[in-house]
Design a protein around this nucleic acid. Structure first.
Lengths: 206, 206
DNA sequence: GTCTATATAGCGATAGAC
DNA sequence: GTCTATCGCTATATAGAC
């Protein structure tokens, strides 16, 4: 009893993140996950009785990682410049290093967020409410203009996640096969320029 | 010969946009499309021999609409304020009024953009190159700061499309069942504040 | 052109030997 | 715990009557 649980499980979870991230829940097949994990199909059903059980396990795992950066960076102890720079950079790095995790999440939301609705309505909602404290603090101390916290976060999330979810479109528009390090640098520069610009974007006519 | 081609075709295309927009290509079923279109399954295969042929037809149709707003609004004849205001508002309206079209496109890109890669690499790429002329003009005439055109457009697209693609997540975070008119107004305000703010977002410390 | 009935393939899931 | 073989179901697609 109990030999390669430690060996098979990570293989399965890794393959599942990759395949679910590429095709979403309905588009993914257990056969492809088994192929990527280099395991017979039946072995996966030994650890996870149903496709949905495997999906939920992978989803919860990625959601935890997805939230990790915000509390570290967006804190009243930092300046808004430092906080936004750190957060955007971390999010872009996540999109670059864990694209399948970001895309798995995007698929889930796109299909109606049925499996994660409870999580979004409780944990993520409270998370955003918590972040509002930092923005309120920065406004009160004159370090930043007022923002509509949830919609401001929607903007941050969509701009940074797009570099994982929409990378096929971006690469095509840029005339490249894939996104390169330069693209992520330009992304950071463009996004931070919107958020942190020292002078106005659209200038007054003289 | 030829009675209800005019009647069945729009029904099929409308139902297909709805179902493909909800589930993507792999997740959608011909049976559900037939049910939504209130037609027998076989009738759809009469007009479109394969599921993929139907998918491509719907996809091309939505892509045309998706591009329509940009050339109208983003033009050197306008001020950057007017252009960005008009474009962002139009894009948000598209997300609100044609959510299935936006989500169909998002599904396609997420799954690797295999069906639209040629379109993105030619038409959309040229489209972005064309838009760069406006931004260059505004920079040259001192109306706007320099931008990295493709990445700036990626930001505009992701922020506005998120209000169709990610609306399930947004509603959950806002503690609502769906997005309301107020949410789209706040979205426009937040996005335009990032783009058009008359003073800096993060203020200098005194 | 329309629709019922069905062929064929691929899916998730399981049985049972090892 | 692992793996081969297979069940039962649902999907796309077609045949053929009307």
């Amino acid at each position: 009893m109990g030999v390669p649980r430690n060996i098979s499980m990570p293989q399965i979870l890794g393959a599942a993140e990759q395949v679910f991230g590429k095709h979403g829940f309905s588009g993914a097949t257990m056969a492809e996950i088994a192929r990527v994990a280099q395991l017979p199909k039946a072995n996966i059903h030994y650890y996870f009785t149903t496709k949905e059980a495997l999906y939920k396990a992978v989803l919860e795992h990625t959601l935890t990682d997805w939230l990790a950066d915000a509390d570290f960076w967006i804190s009243p102890d930092r300046s808004p410049q430092e906080a936004l720079h750190g957060y955007v950079t971390a999010k872009l790095a996540f999109s670059r290093n864990r694209p399948d995790a970001s895309r798995l999440f995007a698929h889930e939301i796109l299909e109606g967020a049925q499996h994660v609705h409870a999580y979004l309505a409780t944990t993520l909602r409270e998370h955003v409410a918590h972040l509002a404290h930092s923005f309120t603090h920065w406004k009160r101390t004159g370090q930043m203009r007022r923002v509509d916290t949830p919609h401001f976060m929607f903007c941050l999330w969509s701009m940074t996640q797009a570099y994982a979810d929409m990378r096929a479109q971006m690469a095509a528009v840029l005339g490249q096969k894939t996104l390169t390090e330069t693209d992520y640098e330009r992304a950071a520069h463009t996004i931070l320029d919107l958020l942190l610009q020292p002078t106005s974007r659209t200038l007054e006519k003289t």
